[in-house]
Design a protein around this nucleic acid. Sequence first.
DNA 1: CGAACGGTTGAGGCGCATCAACGGACGTGG
DNA 2: CCACGTCCGTTGATGCGCCTCAACCGTTCG
Lengths: 215, 215
Amino acid sequence: MTFVALDHLTPASGDVVDAVARLGHHVSLGRGAELYSQDDTAECVYRVVRGIVRTSRITDDGRRQIGGFYYPGDMIALEDETAHCFSAEALTDCEAIVVQRRLLDAAASTDPTVARQLWIAGTRCMRKMQSHLVQLGRKSALERVCAVLSELSARGAGEEIDLPMSRQDIADYLDLTIETVSRMFSQLQARRVIAMTGLRRVRVSDPCALERLAA
Amino acid sequence: MTFVALDHLTPASGDVVDAVARLGHHVSLGRGAELYSQDDTAECVYRVVRGIVRTSRITDDGRRQIGGFYYPGDMIALEDETAHCFSAEALTDCEAIVVQRRLLDAAASTDPTVARQLWIAGTRCMRKMQSHLVQLGRKSALERVCAVLSELSARGAGEEIDLPMSRQDIADYLDLTIETVSRMFSQLQARRVIAMTGLRRVRVSDPCALERLAA
DNA sequence: CGAACGGTTGAGGCGCATCAACGGACGTGG
DNA sequence: CCACGTCCGTTGATGCGCCTCAACCGTTCG
């Protein structure tokens, strides 16, 4: 079993990473594959190693809400000890580490630092969700789209942003329709804030304006 | 130092409760008092003992988003190790236990069960927020109001619900205006689903309909 | 080539926000 | 006791932002 180098990864440093790596096993997922499904009993916890994972929930009336996009280093399914609230699918080809919750639990029972790091990983996830909550609640369509672009541009180092997700994904993440997302993109182009250099490729011409509009 | 009996309280049983009670100190808060403020450094964690606490965030442009309402037994400020994302205020007269995060952290380092229970308390909080997220994202005004009423009615045992919060609080929780919340109440009355027995007192005439409308 | 898919653009409608007026519950001072 | 203001909630008129429906375009794949 081999693992990719972890030093460049964003959060979850130290013992959780070690514990997860030690106790879990490695999986590869093709684009679109499902890591777990909503309402499944939450037996495992996951850490993304490569690629991007999307969590989503289909409501009873068929509407879809995307919980978030998870990048290498992020932990998923820290949610609850019972059933998964969201599904998780591979947005791109992915690698992840899966670890049985009961193993991690057992490790946490004997090794305090593992438990502590688990807590911290959970709080990170929570903060992410909180800002998402505020976004959904209190922002206009343009502000939301700008916020996503701004986040993606912060993540990717260069001037050009690669959008790994479809318009539908963005719409379901922001609680908008694809048409509205598309219109906001067009509007940002007309305002010379961004320029589309491909269907899923964006150049941020005016980062300050983008930041300002994201509010 | 005395504490109320805890056996009837909803979550957070066992060692966290013990640890929090052992390490923390007791505070009383008048209605409207602030437990902590958004963007303060998050030095403490809290547990509600009596009364109701509301968390809220004022965005840069002055809009308010309520994070949630917390009842006896609930833990607050598990969010992050850095700054508080939300403020917390006493909605009614309250008692709470405050515990220094570093003490709890230290306890978690030596006592694995404390750390484990902290994790579990965090996941509970997360689930709460996740369903709130889906509500904000994917529901109509009527559905949201019904969901709140339904939740409150589940919490309070009797047929009559006491609304502890103002319309403004409900509106900011659901991302609606007070006018819209008011109109939904009126509509529910017209449909014979609820009956107002006081300004902040509701009788649920048709619980099934309410449940159904909450979707 | 045609079909399927993802994305863009336009026309029209609906849901909720906004603005404004009103009403009842409370206080305070006459 | 009543006039008075303030606070909270309700109700109505109007408008805007986003959804809905629909047509269209470019790309991909059979």
